[in-house]
Design a protein around this nucleic acid. Structure first.
Length: 289
DNA sequence: TGAATTGTTATCGT
DNA sequence: AACGATAACAATTC
């Protein structure tokens, strides 16, 4: 299931094939996934040249020369496939974009969870997403603010795309393990040192994921090597690399969650629930852009 | 057969 | 009333 590093890998591969090309045909074979609807997307993209290809959170973003943007979200099982000429079509093709140089970009998606959207207002769309964890705005201070102005458990917070954009189940578990923090730890109880460790762990594990071209943990996303580097995800019952204790598997926020109970204790400083504490104002320190 | 998976939305509780 | 937690949902594979 593509998270930030997988989407980044896909974007880097797609960019040189797309930039400068004009979209000459668009076909949807699963109209329910097209937003706002098929005619609007067709009107928006036909005849437009692709100015740049970026990633924002888990979105693939094609900036078009009319100022609009085509957004592709792969969700669970989406893939981009390329075809030229009359090769055999891959399975589960849900949408087709033909380019002016004869290339054909296809969104393939067995489970049909993927989404395609066209917007004329990229800025307000982007504003609904949280900070980029590898970007310059993800400072220790910014993370400290996001953590202190809420009273939630750490893992659901990390998965909240409106707070930090791009983290999914795998990288959330890995970052928490590397930071030595329990997934259920209350986010507004971290010491400054722990905030710095969490930020470093997030950035390190995401960069490592990109360096390894993502994690291929099942049939959905091929080609990555990051699955060999995972220390807790999918390793319930195995010994923790750091301390040897067996890795626990539980459920947090409806997601399978893997952590080391010894390295990521809750009881020590993790005072959940007891006592109401003051929280920083929610809307303070808004960021630009 | 049912568990697993993402992000959005609706609903419930505090 | 606002926020956080929870459940349902879309659909398919193994």
């Amino acid at each position: 299931m593509p998270e930030l590093p997988e989407v980044e890998t896909i974007v880097r591969a797609a960019r040189p094939r797309l930039v400068g090309r004009t979209i000459v045909r668009f076909e949807s074979r699963w109209p329910r996934q097209i937003h706002p609807d098929v005619p609007a997307v067709r009107r928006g993209v036909l005849g437009c040249r692709v100015r740049r290809v970026d990633r924002r959170g888990k979105y693939i973003v094609l900036r078009l020369d009319d100022g609009g943007a085509l957004l592709i979200h792969l969700r669970m099982s989406g893939r981009l496939e390329w075809a030229a000429g009359h090769a055999v079509e891959p399975a589960h093709v849900r949408a087709v974009f033909d380019l002016d140089d004869g290339q054909r970009l296809m969104l393939c998606d067995a489970r049909k969870f993927g989404r395609i959207a066209y917007t004329t207002d990229w800025r307000s769309f982007s504003a609904r997403l949280g900070v980029e964890p590898l970007g310059p705005q993800f400072t220790p201070r910014r993370l400290a603010h996001e953590l202190s102005c809420r009273a939630r458990r750490l893992k659901p917070l990390l998965l909240d795309q409106s707070v930090i954009a791009g983290i999914g189940n795998i990288y959330a578990d890995e970052a928490l393990h590397r930071a030595g923090l329990h997934p259920c730890r209350r986010c507004d109880t971290l010491a400054p040192e722990q905030v710095r460790r969490l930020r470093s762990a997030l950035r390190a594990v995401l960069r490592q994921g990109i360096r390894n071209q993502g994690a291929s943990i099942d049939w959905i996303y091929p080609g990555g090597r990051m699955q060999r580097r995972l220390r807790v995800y999918g390793r319930g019952g195995e010994a923790c690399d750091r301390c040897g204790a067996p890795i626990a598997t539980t459920r947090v926020a409806q997601r399978s969650t893997h952590f080391c109970p010894a390295c990521q204790p809750l009881d020590e400083q993790g005072d959940r629930g007891l006592g109401r504490r003051r929280r920083a104002p929610r809307r303070a320190a808004a960021c630009a852009g």
